[in-house]
């Protein structure tokens, strides 16, 4: 049930004519888009088009200058802190502590929102970093294992919307396959995933829908493959 009482399921992201500034530059110049819950959406477009800015806006890290922006039924113009707590953004870094073990990292992020040890263990199991990897310091993991640790941390802190900026970067073929599998499983379990990527073939096969970002505006380009 949506917030207005209708039976239409609420969207994970609903933007109407949204403008966001970086300094005085309009990095997003009238974005209108809707992303449903449980979708995997690819944001594509050239460098500097505004993909990362759009992800950061969805994460509540940038103020909305103009327009209507709702994320997980929360108004981004007035409640960015609440949005941040429900959204997980992974950029070019993983947000981990290399000296701590996998378990300690996931537990740390889980406990920022009061997650239990069972939730932490479940998140690690879903990302297949339990067992022999659990007590390994993150500094000794491969790039793919680090990315899975970061995703397990998102699960542990109950992020409902995953915003991933170039998630395949730095991963080998096996790591990319593993990542795609866990993202599909996460979406099947109810997470909404938005991926910004230049790797159209790889990310396009993962996505259920694609949105092109050009010069700070968006347009639908059809479904994923």
């Amino acid at each position: 049930m949506s917030s207005d009482g209708s039976s239409t399921p609420s969207a994970a992201i609903e933007f109407v004519d949204v403008v966001a500034l970086i300094g005085s530059f309009p990095a997003l110049a009238g974005v209108t888009m809707r992303i449903e819950r449980g979708e995997i959406v690819l944001l594509r477009g050239p460098n500097g088009a505004g993909k990362t800015t759009l992800l950061r806006l969805c994460a509540g890290l940038l103020p909305v200058e103009r327009g209507t922006a709702r994320v997980l039924e929360l108004d981004l113009t007035i409640d960015r802190d609440s949005v941040r707590r429900r959204v997980g953004l992974i950029g070019h870094t993983n947000g981990s502590y290399p000296d701590l073990t996998v378990t300690e990292n996931v537990r740390f992020w889980g406990r920022t929102i009061g997650a239990t040890d069972d939730e932490v263990a479940s998140a690690m199991e879903r990302m297949k970093i339990d067992g022999r990897l659990a007590d390994v310091p993150v500094s000794r993991l491969s790039a793919g294992q680090r990315r899975r640790t970061a995703l397990a941390s998102l699960i542990a802190r109950r992020a409902q919307l995953w915003l991933l900026d170039e998630p395949h970067a730095g991963l080998d073929a096996e790591g990319r396959d593993e990542l795609d599998a866990v993202l599909r499983a996460a979406a099947a379990a109810g997470a909404t995933i938005v991926v910004a990527s230049h790797e159209l073939e790889r990310a396009g096969s993962l996505a259920t829908r694609q949105i092109e970002v050009v010069a700070g505006q968006t347009r639908e380009v059809g479904g994923g493959s």
Binding site: G60, R84, L89, G95, S96, Y97, T112, V138, R146
Partner: peptide, 17 residues
């Protein structure tokens, strides 16, 4: 340095901690 080595400070900020 611990916080910035792998973007943890940004992650703390973006997680609304």
């Amino acid at each position: 340095a611990v916080e910035t080595a792998d973007g943890a400070l940004d992650a703390l900020r973006s997680a609304g901690v």
